[in-house]
Design a protein around this nucleic acid. Structure first.
Length: 971
RNA sequence: GGGCGUAUAGCUCAGUGGUAGAGCACUGUAUUGACAUUGCAGGGGUCGGAAGUUCAACUCUUCCUACGCCCA
């Protein structure tokens, strides 16, 4: 890429080329052993996923920070990798099998897992390729996967350590069961939705002729889930509810099952809700579970009436009638379920209390149930209603692990940006529930626990036959798969061998211990079996900040890059991922994983709706890249990212930033056509000309503003700063100001200086813009380098911009010089504006008189007459009184130019213009006068505010006077 | 029911205790050499409503209204 740039900027043409160059040359992680580290870990996307607009935002922000820090000389490491995403990935592969009329259970576990690995090999590169298209400068040489061998080691170690510390335990309690995926899920994976449903009222007859004070021989209960009455174990009333005090301790006989259940008291029963009496199904409702426990029912005794598919099964007491067995819990695919049958039977038997209501026409109507909106839990992956189900699962004691992170956020060890998220964080962390981490899936990290039969102390020395817990096991051989969970003991270890060793310690000396289901002819042997479940995906990704760096092995890499410096994530995974990294970071590493957590919002559709596949309003970032270029999309994301707000998609704005890239492209072409090439110094060149000093000063201010914005992670402010500088200062003013320097016959010294300064300023733009728009800046950087390259001894063109140096102008610009340019700019704008209002052709050159010139004016007119002529189109400018006759007045600073208008314009129009300006000044002056006349203001306001008001008043009064005089002169 | 957030120009959004800004859109205008993916100029806002604090409120406080999100 030398010689000439094409006349139009084509993003697609340069993007692939530069990305490949960076990656091949290892530029995303240049060797900087002595440099200060800077580390970000990428939230690992699902391995089989593809890039959506949220990834585009998340990764753009991270790349901006990483490129910025790399340019500032740090050893910047952006860890990248993918997540095995247990449920999501298994679902994808199962769906593929379904399409071929096949299913998972047609295969062995090993065969199926192999299929998932095959699928990963096939499609795992999709999203990583897409991240490259976005320009993300991650360290691909160390790409990670949460099921890499070393990662698995980290996961197992964490599990074993937590278990040994009592922070992981097995418990029988209600879990959120997804009957479609047939696995337990955590609280976070449950989404509550309000859906229309019903509230049924039933009569539960009192036993043995007992009656309520009002004579009724039944208790009325209401429920939204009638089918669960098959497993009801009590009726609860509030302890202070007088209506039922006389029957507490008595029993009701449940319709259908005939089960006798007690009437108990519990705070959970709300006297205001329905009849005040509530049916209690401890095995299928979270609240009832707690009520049941308080009533002294152990988890193991709680009745269960559903199987893993949420079909009715027989309860332990065998009281569920035959006709219910096998029915689904409720109507599904048009087929009635247990719910419908229960309602039908109760109605037939007279136990249903109808809901009486009036129609719109005022007629009384009788319904089976009261219509009601019900907050219903759904699995976020499976999409079906979650069933609270009593099972044995592994839990993390999240409450204990949460304590240190809570404190760290409170004491500032971890800063959450924007801070408003702290409250949400505390609210969740301070009420955190045990974290269910076991999943009944095949794809994932298998839990390192091996079960064997529990042995009582007295059995320790007994013969093998006596610890044979089940009749169907041959003597001396114990198959754990036939042992009730409550009769199992777990050996938790990193390896099978360690688990066996533990087991040998546990079992009587004369026992041998092995692993596996079957055993033929080996007596006196305990067969352990590994827990078939896998861990919640988030259990492994919680280790991401250090397991990706090699932990638990110690290394320089880990030492240098942990803790990380910053985490950027969407607020939607604050609890799923961020909080758990805090817990695991603290537990495993003894430290917070990063000192700062930046949370960004969601990218929404143009109408503000959440994007979703079902709504069909998903915007594909790759499509935007194809249309406008990756640089434009990235700049859009940055410019729109203000803290604490979601981003609404706006294609027009992306287009605007594509235009911005084109603007820079053309500005560079202009520079090249005037012999302006690459800079050769990091510091600003020596400059004498005012325009050059001015742009150097502006660069300096821009760098400062940009650094300030980046320090605060104000991506919008950073993007707008570089945008405004490039377009409004550099292109609109500086390039226009220097055009005369390259005119024929102009000073060669001035041209040389200007080439140096312009080339330098352009390079500073490239570097400052590079984190936001890496592709075009790299392209133009090299194009400029080709113009003033190594053949001239310029070292700058030997390295790419990605590893260039962040601007450090160290310039000393003179105030009179920059003031002069600001003055020219003001004069030019005012002249243009006046001409426009008076309908004078913009190109018309006008003579101007300056009756009393300030020092700034006279020296600027002398030194920068070419710029004044070219931009303000005033020529000649005479220092002195204007001849009599109609004229317009234009100001710059305190200087008033008189521009004769004879023959050019209608005097009336100038008078109108002056009058408008006069009114504005008078209004301002009057308001300021009023304020200054207020003693309270003068006495109590800050002195600088008073000073400013005085100065403004003086200015506006003088302006009004001047305008009045000018008007008078026009007659 | 609890918590959080938002409300500023037609649209999308910044913003500060001293009477408001950007981009897009709109209006007018310019076109022989960087750029029409452009230049120049302009119109447009009682900063959601009410009360309070203050010399001064778009900004701070309280309440209200609307919308959105999270949790139960």
């Amino acid at each position: 890429m030398t010689e000439q740039l094409p006349t139009t900027f084509n993003p697609a043409e340069i993007e692939a080329r530069w990305y490949q160059h960076w990656e091949e040359k290892g530029l995303f992680r240049p060797e900087r052993p002595d440099a200060e580290p800077f580390t970000i870990v990428n939230p690992p996307p699902n391995v089989t996923g593809s890039l959506h607009i949220g990834h585009a935002l998340d990764n753009t922000l991270q790349d901006i920070v990483v490129r910025y820090e790399r340019l500032r000389g740090k050893d910047a490491l952006w860890v990248v990798g993918t997540d095995h995403a247990g449920i999501a990935t298994q679902m994808v592969v199962e769906r593929q099998l379904e399409e071929r009329q096949d299913k998972r259970t047609n295969y062995s576990r090993e065969e199926f897992v192999d299929k998932v690995w095959e699928w990963k090999a096939e499609s795992g590169g999709t999203i990583t390729g897409q991240l490259r298209r976005l320009g993300c400068s991650m360290d691909w040489s160390r790409e990670q996967f949460t099921m890499d061998e070393h990662f698995t080691k980290a996961v197992l170690k964490t599990f074993v350590d937590l278990y040994n510390d009592g922070l992981i335990y097995r418990d029988k309690r209600l879990v959120n069961w997804d009957p479609k995926l047939k696995t337990a899920i955590s609280d976070l994976e449950v989404e509550s939705q309000n859906i229309p449903g019903h509230f049924w009222h039933f009569k539960y007859p009192l036993e043995d002729g007992v009656t309520l004070p009002d004579g009724r021989d039944y208790i009325e209960v209401a429920t939204t889930r009638p089918e669960t009455m098959l497993a009801d174990m009590a009726v609860a009333v509030h302890p202070s509810d007088e209506r039922y005090a006389s029957v507490v301790g008595k029993h009701v006989v449940l319709p259908i099952t005939g089960r006798k259940v007690p009437i108990i008291t519990d705070e959970h029963a709300d006297p205001e809700l329905g009849s005040g009496a509530v049916k209690i199904t401890p095995g299928h409702d979270f609240n009832d579970f707690e009520v049941g426990k308080r009533a002294g029912i152990a988890a193991g005794e709680m009745l269960n009436m559903l199987d893993g598919d949420a079909n009715v099964c027989q309860t332990a007491d065998g009281l569920v009638p035959e006709e219910y067995l096998g029915l689904h819990r409720f109507k599904r695919d048009g087929v009635s379920g247990a719910r419908e049958l229960v309602v039908q039977r109760l109605k037939e038997q007279g136990f249903l209390i109808p809901h009486i209501t009036k129609t719109k026409k005022g007629e009384t109507q009788e319904l089976d149930a009261e219509p009601r909106t019900i907050a219903t839990p759904f699995g976020d992956r499976g999409g079906v209603v979650i069933e609270p189900w009593l099972t044995d699962q592994w839990y993390v004691d999240a409450e204990k692990l949460a304590q240190k992170p809570i404190q760290q956020v409170k004491d500032g060890t971890i800063e959450i940006v924007p801070q408003s998220w702290e409250k949400t964080f505390f609210n969740w962390m301070e009420n955190i529930q045990p974290w269910c981490i076991s999943r009944q899936l095949w794809w994932g990290h298998r839990i390192p626990a091996w079960f064997g039969p529990k042995v009582g102390k007295d059995q320790k020395k007994a013969s093998p036959v006596k610890i044979n817990l089940r009749a169907d096991s041959p003597p001396g051989q114990i198959k754990i798969s036939t042992v009730e969970p409550s009769e199992r003991v777990a050996f938790v270890a990193m390896t099978e061998a360690e688990a066996i060793a533990q087991a040998k310690e546990y079992y009587p000396d004369n026992f041998d211990v092995g692993v596996g289901e079957h055993d033929v002819g080996v007596p006196d042997m305990v067969r352990l079996i590994r827990d078939p479940d896998v861990l919640d995906t988030w259990f492994s990704s919680a280790l991401w900040p250090f397991a990706t760096l090699g932990w638990p092995n110690e290394s320089d890499l880990l030492e240098k890059h942990f803790p990380n410096d910053l985490l950027i994530s969407g607020f939607d995974i604050l609890f799923f991922w961020d909080a758990r990294m805090m817990m695991m970071g603290q537990y495993n590493m003894g430290k917070a994983p990063w000192p700062k957590l930046y949370l960004h919002g969601l990218v929404r559709a143009a109408d503000g709706a959440k994007m979703s596949k079902s709504k069909g309003n998903v915007v594909d970032p790759l499509g935007l890249i194809d249309e406008y270029g990756a640089d434009a999309l990235r700049f859009f994301m940055a410019a729109m990212e203000s803290q604490g707000r979601d981003i609404k998609m706006d294609n027009e704005r992306v287009k605007g930033y594509r235009n911005f890239a084109t603007k820079l492209w053309n500005a560079t072409r202009f520079c090249q056509s005037n012999g302006i090439g690459a800079s050769s110094t990091l510091a600003a060149p020596e400059a004498r000309l005012a325009a050059n000093q001015w742009i150097i000063g502006e660069v300096q201010q821009t760098v400062e503003a940009l650094d300030a914005a980046m320090a605060d992670l104000r991506f919008d402010a950073a993007a707008n700063t570089i945008y405004q500088f490039t377009w409004s200062k550099f292109c609109d003013w500086y390039l226009e100001l220097i055009k005369p320097v390259f005119a024929e016959g102009a000073s060669e010294t001035a041209a040389t200086e200007t080439r140096e300064v312009a080339g330098w300023a352009l390079d500073q733009i490239f570097v400052m813009l590079h984190p936001f728009m890496p592709f075009i800046t790299e392209e133009l950087w090299h194009a400029q380098g080709a113009l003033n390259g190594p053949e001239n001894g310029n070292p700058r063109s030997e390295y790419p911009i990605i590893t260039a140096k962040w601007p450090n102008p160290r310039a000393n610009v003179s105030k009179p010089a920059t003031d002069a340019i600001d003055w020219v700019i003001e004069l030019t704008s005012n002249v243009r504006s006046a001409k426009n209002e008076l309908g004078i052709a913009p190109g018309a050159k006008l003579a101007a008189f300056l009756p009393s010139a300030s020092e700034l004016a006279s020296s600027t007119i002398e030194r920068s007459s070419a710029a004044i002529e070219r931009l303000a189109r005033l020529t000649p400018v005479t220092l002195g009184e204007a001849p009599d006759g109609p004229a317009m007045q234009v100001t710059a600073g305190g200087d008033v130019f008189v521009i004769p208008l004879e023959g050019i314009i209608d005097i009336a129009e100038e008078k109108a213009r002056l009058k408008k300006a006069l009114e504005a000044s008078q209004k301002e002056a009057k308001s300021l006068e009023g304020r200054l006349g207020n003693a309270n203001f003068v006495e109590r306001a800050k002195p600088e505010a008073v000073e400013k008001a005085k100065a403004d008043f003086a200015h506006h009064s003088a302006e009004a006077e001047r305008l009045t005089a000018a008007l008078a002169r026009l007659g």
